[in-house]
Amino acid sequence: MEAESKDKIVSIEKPELIAPPDWKPVIMGILCNWCSYAGSDLTGTSRTQYPPNIRIIRVPCSSRVDPWFIIKALQTTADGVLISGCHPGDCHYISGNYYARRRFLVTKELLKMVGFHGHRVQFSWVSAAEGAKFAQVVKKVTDDVVKLGPLHLYKKENFNR
C-alpha cells in the first residue's frame, strides 16, 4: 500500500481496455497461515460477503512468497494478485512479514517498469481478528482490477501474445 505514494515509475498500462461482457477477473490471493488466512476464515464464519473472484493459496508466512509466484500468476490466468500477511510486529515467525514487505516493494516497482499497473499487485496486513477488513481488501482489489480490465487483452496489445 505504501508503494502508491512513492510512485517513481509511471506504468504504461492505462485502464482503457474494453472487457468482454462475460469477463470475470481472477485474483490470486496468497495468504499467510497465521494471520490473513485465519482472518479470511473469520470472514467466512461471520458471513461477511465479498466478490467471488479471489482464489486463495495458503502459505506458512508471507515471507514464503517468492516474486516468481506473483509473476507466474500474472503470466497465466490471474488479472491481479493479493499478498496478505500479519501486521508489522505481529508475525508468527517474528520477522517474516518485514522481509515480505521489502521484497514486495521491489517486485512491484519491477512489474511497473515492465508496464503493469500498480493496482494489479497489492499487499495488505490482515490479522486473524480482522474478518471484515479482509472482505474490504478483497472488494478493493477486485474493484481495482475490474477497472483495469482483462490482463490477457493488455498482454496481447503490448507484448503481442
Partner: peptide, 15 residues
Amino acid sequence: REHSSWVHQKDKKGA
C-alpha cells in the same frame, strides 16, 4: 466453506 459458500451467499454460480 469459509472461502466460498459462506462468503458468496448471494451468488451461487460464482460460489
